[in-house]
Design a protein around this nucleic acid. Sequence first.
DNA 1: TGAATAGTGTCTTTCAGACAGTATTGG
DNA 2: CCAATACTGTCTGAAAGACACTATTCA
Lengths: 244, 244
Amino acid sequence: MAGRNETKGVDVSGQLDFPRPLTTVDVVIFAIRADNLHVLLVQRPAIDSEPFPRSWALPGGFVDIARDRTLQACAARKLKEKTGVTAPYLEQLGSWGSASRDPRGWSATHAYFALMPEAAVAKLPASDAQWFAVAGDAVQPKLAFDHGEILGTAIRRLRNKVEYTSLPAYLMPPEFTLPDLQRVYEIVLDRPLEKSAFRTRILAADMIEPAAGMRRGPNRPAQLYRLKTGREPVYFARTFNPPE
Amino acid sequence: MAGRNETKGVDVSGQLDFPRPLTTVDVVIFAIRADNLHVLLVQRPAIDSEPFPRSWALPGGFVDIARDRTLQACAARKLKEKTGVTAPYLEQLGSWGSASRDPRGWSATHAYFALMPEAAVAKLPASDAQWFAVAGDAVQPKLAFDHGEILGTAIRRLRNKVEYTSLPAYLMPPEFTLPDLQRVYEIVLDRPLEKSAFRTRILAADMIEPAAGMRRGPNRPAQLYRLKTGREPVYFARTFNPPE
DNA sequence: TGAATAGTGTCTTTCAGACAGTATTGG
DNA sequence: CCAATACTGTCTGAAAGACACTATTCA
């Protein structure tokens, strides 16, 4: 990484006094609300000297080299600040860096994406944050910076991984039924799945275990399950019925 | 990304005069040589004031905000400098950033990984660069910085994606036979594949087309193929026979 | 008893795995 | 003709798709 035989002001002086890009971290936070995939956005301050005043943007901000030991810790901090909780799933999405993406200068952002259950974020501590429904691979408002592109990448990555992983389990409350879980798969994938094949697959994956009670309603009760303790996601050998 | 309501010296003054992390790009370059997966490394300069003098490291270095328009362009530039060619495949691997990974201070690197055919890099323009055989998920020398960890991630990601994508096609010369391609899959995965299933799968993927000639030898000649022009990798719905 | 949803069983289809068998070259 | 490798065909088995059938609750 650093300090290769560059031509800029490195090495010779031992100084590192050449211009550095702005460095930020952004987090795409997903949750299911009202049978729809939602993402958490924050509104930029109404200060005209700031870029994109009043636009909606992904939660994030500058890396604070005094507080953040690692990029991942920085992402977890920003997530905690906006939601008040720790997400059960946080993975790196990628990085975007260019001379033009921020009017203040050459900047690079490290993007993460997080999954969390709706219940965990019923009341948001941050007043400038709000949930937006995902439609297609975007939200309704046009986002600040290149956040629309980052969000689109996150949505496509989520949809793609849901085809062959147990990621939706991280969108569920602590206890849930198999039909609940199937519904979340169907919401994210936006297509129905076969009940029988779905159940076989999930149970064969050995990722959930029965909980004590049953979910009761005006019909036959459903078995409650919880995630097994080892929380790594499961990868299936095949995708769900590919729609072609 | 940038300019959220941070507590550091942003916003109020309109200045961005707080400390920024060092920003670098590193590239993991893979090729097949002598029936083995190899990775290109460079030796760090023998200057004791530099971190990790004389250690082997991934090719890379500081982002040059005057020359590099984007991170991807920066990665492509570094790849070109070390190999003299443009890689047919270059994807982002992830980013690593922390207070401790570089003794010169808080630093973040954007890592890429590239695939190229052996022939393209027969003679290296960079005298400090050298190919190393991959064994397990590492190379023999201990690498500078956290490059051993980055390389390990790259190798595992490559192996994993080879299970269900056409990535090995980018390790092939312009024309190759199906047995050639199968051999490369087997080298990367380190296990034999079924000939019949392999052929069916590759041909069904519609990613290659027959070229004019045949590969001749002391046996039955083999049909030559080339990659179809649309160079996006193909994703298969299933992995190759999972070894369990 | 009926509506509603949970959960199971069964038949079919698809496709990879195994492996034998055929094809085509040089020596 | 033989060795060697390219390529094809056939059988089997595993798992998904389709869908009917049974189970259990409340009203």
